[in-house]
């Protein structure tokens, strides 16, 4: 029964990782975490079938798998969140710089000015 559950969970997670990842509803980090967790469940079922360990060993292995899966999910989530935060920050900075006229803040280089260029910098006037 436990083995069957592990196989079902494993297959479901791998299929979901592929489908959701392909559809762009999961970040690559999350999809990879789902895939490895699913593969872990299948490997656990395989070990249980081949070696037929006592229930206690299988239970410990299951626990280990669950802990590993949680850590994997946590790390994937943190990584995806960090990437998203960085993207939001970067976009907000770009908007601010564009609205603030960063491109026009300074005109010609000091060299060009020395050669007689105009100075259209955003100098302080106060």
């Amino acid at each position: 029964m436990l083995r069957l559950m592990l196989v079902l969970v494993g297959v479901a997670m791998i299929v979901l990782a592929a489908a959701q990842g392909r559809a762009g509803r999961l970040s690559m980090g999350h999809a990879a975490a789902w895939f490895w967790v699913g593969l872990g469940a299948l490997l656990l079922a395989l070990v249980a079938t081949l070696l037929e360990p006592v229930d206690a060993v299988l239970a410990y292995a299951g626990l280990l798998w669950a802990v590993g899966a949680s850590i994997g999910f946590g790390m994937a989530h943190a990584r995806a969140q960090t990437r998203l935060d960085e993207r939001v920050k970067s976009l907000a900075q770009e908007i601010a710089l564009l609205k603030g006229g960063a491109e026009q803040a300074r005109g010609p280089s000091p060299g060009a000015e020395a050669a007689g260029g105009t100075d259209d910098r955003g100098r302080r006037s106060g």
């Binding site: 920050k89 907000a92 900075q93 908007i95 601010a96 710089l97 609205k99 603030g100 006229g101 960063a102 803040a105 955003g122 302080r124 006037s125 106060g126």
Partner: peptide, 16 residues
């Protein structure tokens, strides 16, 4: 005061 000003659309943090 006549200085250049860049305004973040929302609070991003000191480092940002």
């Amino acid at each position: 005061q006549g200085v250049n000003v860049v305004v973040h659309p929302f609070n991003l943090g000191y480092g940002a």
